[in-house]
Every structure is written in structure tokens, then in C-alpha cells.
Amino acid sequence: MNKRQIKVAAIQSAPLLFDKQSAMDRIDDKTREAARQGAELIVFPEVFLPGYPRGLSFGARVGSRTAGGRKDWERYWASSIDVPGPETVVFGELAKELGVYLVIGVVERDQDFSRATLYNSVIYIGPDGRLLGKHRKLVPTGSERLLWGQGDGSTLPVIDTPFGRIGGLICWENYMPLARTALYAQGIDIYIAPTADARDTWQATIRHIACEGRCFVIACNQFATKASYPADLDGYEELEQDDEILSRGGSAIVGPLGDYVAGPLYDEEGIVFATLDLDEIPQSRFDFDVVGHYSRPDVFQLVVNEKKQEIVRKTEG
């Protein structure tokens, strides 16, 4: 049965960084709080587990790395998770207990080869407790490339639900027009955009995506302060000149004509709620459907390589 309305929630919070259990506890607490208020789709920010290490260099300069920075990175690696793994089982049990969809930004450890590479990922958990899919950020931004590897076209899911198709991109990969088009072509209805960008220009971005894709956009950011960081990090002194609030948030929910439905929320921890009317999506596409009647496939075409990229392939001789 299709549902034409859904209450959604964007969680604006942050755990104690580099602390897996802190993030797990915060996810449990905030999910329950949102579910008590009727939310059925609950979204957490970019790399909520184990946090976005804004302001840290991990001792990296061009041509050199420090021993302390390596130790900080190993601590970050140790607080990351396997997907699937024990933590996703816990999230599945939570989602099933509460009957909600969970979308969570995590740092994912590679399970295929060395287990050393990390990915900036988003996982999708269904109300039956199943892991429905994941997306790995295609291009980490700037210095993020020292922390996270690149995703590929095998993790660009758009997932069918009773209230429409959900999927999304992470932070600045939303500035990749062809990546957005790949999601539009899958009929996305609720576009999820977890981020670490609290600038005013990000608000222009999410409103543009909503208007371009004629979809709802749930944009979710952390509210993080210096108190979110363990003081025993080797690189903690790098934060001395920064403001006490390191990420002011800006979580918001936008309708398919580009207007705010809720938010943006700034300068505090909180939850942004909205009840989405899915009938607004076909109404909005009456005069503009980016991959339908407003496309020109005779002029423009996009090819998406959805094959998983592997450095080693085993064949039988």
C-alpha cells in the first residue's frame, strides 16, 4: 500500500568524536526521541559515526606525516564500522523495534582487501531491520581525501518504500550535476543530503536540488563544538584558534518547488521535523520533469558505470 504522507526527521547533533560507543548511544537516543514524535524516516548527518573531524590535519603536510597524526588516524579507523557488521545489526534491531526507516552517515572500513581504507558512507536501514543499501561518497573534498577513499557507481542506490523512492548524495558531491542526474533517472522522490557544510551557500544548493529534481530534500548537518572532541588527541591544539562552535548546523527540509518546509536550524542541537505530502511531487513535475518531458536525450545522454571496481580479480584458470 502506498502512503501519500510521511513524517520525517533530520537529527542535528554530534557524538564525542573518535568514540564509536558515544555515537551508537546518541543514535539510539535521538532515534527514539524522533520516533516518539511520530517520525517514520529519520536521517543522521554526514559521518555521524564516529564524527566529522573538522579542523584536524592528522599531522599531514606535503611530503611528510607525523607519528602523532598517524596515531590519531588509527584511532579514527578503530572507531569506524564494517557494513554490514555488528553495528548495522544493532541499528536494524532499533529500526525494527520502532518501525522506522533509518539513514545514517558512517565511516565505513573496507572489507574486501586490506581493511585499512575508510569510506564516507550513508547506510539505509528498513523498518524490518534489513540493511537496504549504502552509498559511498564518490569524491571526498579537499583534505578529506587523506581520510577516505573514493566510492564507485555500484553504490548509487535509490530505494523503493511505501512512501516513495529515497536516496541521496553526501555534502559536496551534490555539486556534481551528473551524479544528481543519476539519482533523478531512478525516480527519486525524497533526496537525502547529509553534509558538513554550514555556510549560507549550502542552503542555496539544497533549494536548487529540490527545484531541479522536483523532489523533497532532507539536508542534515551536525551541531558540533570543541567539547565534542577528546582532549587527548595529538592534534587537539590545532583547534585553539577556532570558535567554540565548530559546526553551526543548518539542517532543513525543502519541498519540490524549492521552498522550505522546515528549518534551517542553526546554533543549537535539535531535530527538524516535517510531514511530507507526496502528492506535491507529481504536481511539481507538471511543468518540469528533469529526466522526463524536460529532457533532450537526442542531445544529452549520461552513461553510469554501476560495476564495482576491484583492484584484484580472481579467475579460474
Score class of each variant (00 low, 15 high):
residue 221 N to M: 14
residue 229 Y to E: 12
residue 157 P to W: 10
residue 195 T to M: 02
residue 214 R to H: 07
residue 22 S to D: 15
residue 237 E to I: 11
residue 10 A to I: 08
residue 291 V to H: 10
residue 221 N to L: 14
residue 101 Y to T: 10
residue 198 A to W: 15
residue 204 A to K: 13
residue 35 A to P: 15
residue 49 L to R: 08
residue 145 R to Q: 14
residue 263 G to A: 02
residue 238 E to G: 01
residue 278 L to D: 10
residue 296 R to D: 07
residue 111 Q to M: 08
residue 316 E to T: 14
residue 154 S to V: 03
residue 79 S to P: 04
residue 107 V to N: 15
residue 264 P to T: 00
residue 220 C to N: 13
residue 226 K to L: 10
residue 257 L to Y: 09
residue 261 V to L: 15
residue 117 T to M: 05
residue 147 L to W: 00
residue 49 L to H: 06
residue 156 L to F: 05
residue 299 V to M: 06
residue 191 Y to R: 00
residue 225 T to P: 06
residue 168 G to W: 04
residue 278 L to M: 15
residue 302 L to G: 00
residue 183 L to W: 08
residue 313 R to L: 13
residue 96 K to I: 01
residue 219 A to D: 09
residue 263 G to Q: 02
residue 292 G to Q: 03
residue 188 I to E: 07
residue 239 L to N: 04
residue 119 Y to F: 13
residue 156 L to S: 03
residue 218 I to Q: 12
residue 229 Y to W: 10
residue 194 P to E: 04
residue 54 R to Q: 08
residue 315 T to Y: 14
residue 136 R to N: 08
residue 195 T to G: 09
residue 1 M to C: 14
residue 182 A to G: 15
residue 260 Y to S: 03
residue 162 P to R: 13
residue 151 G to R: 06
residue 249 G to P: 13
residue 203 Q to I: 11
residue 311 I to H: 03
residue 216 F to S: 11
residue 237 E to R: 14
residue 35 A to Q: 14
residue 46 E to C: 02
residue 312 V to N: 11
residue 304 V to P: 03
residue 263 G to F: 07
residue 86 P to F: 02
residue 216 F to Y: 15
residue 265 L to I: 04
residue 171 C to K: 02
residue 126 G to L: 04
residue 313 R to T: 08
residue 276 L to V: 01
residue 10 A to V: 10
residue 211 C to N: 13
residue 304 V to K: 12
residue 251 S to V: 01
residue 99 G to E: 13
residue 223 F to W: 11
residue 289 D to C: 07
residue 180 R to H: 13
residue 287 D to K: 12
residue 101 Y to W: 13
residue 312 V to H: 14
residue 157 P to E: 05
residue 159 I to A: 09
residue 12 Q to R: 07
residue 121 S to T: 05
residue 181 T to H: 12
residue 107 V to I: 14
residue 188 I to H: 01
residue 221 N to W: 07
residue 272 V to K: 09
residue 180 R to D: 12
residue 303 V to P: 05
residue 248 R to A: 08
residue 109 R to P: 09
residue 233 L to N: 06
residue 43 V to Q: 06
residue 158 V to C: 01
residue 179 A to E: 03
residue 203 Q to Y: 04
residue 164 G to D: 01
residue 307 K to C: 13
residue 125 I to M: 07
residue 1 M to V: 10
residue 255 G to A: 05
residue 37 Q to E: 02
residue 51 G to P: 07
residue 6 I to W: 06
residue 29 D to P: 00
residue 136 R to W: 02
residue 78 A to R: 14
residue 107 V to E: 14
residue 86 P to C: 05
residue 243 D to R: 09
residue 265 L to K: 12
residue 177 P to W: 12
residue 164 G to E: 04
residue 109 R to N: 02
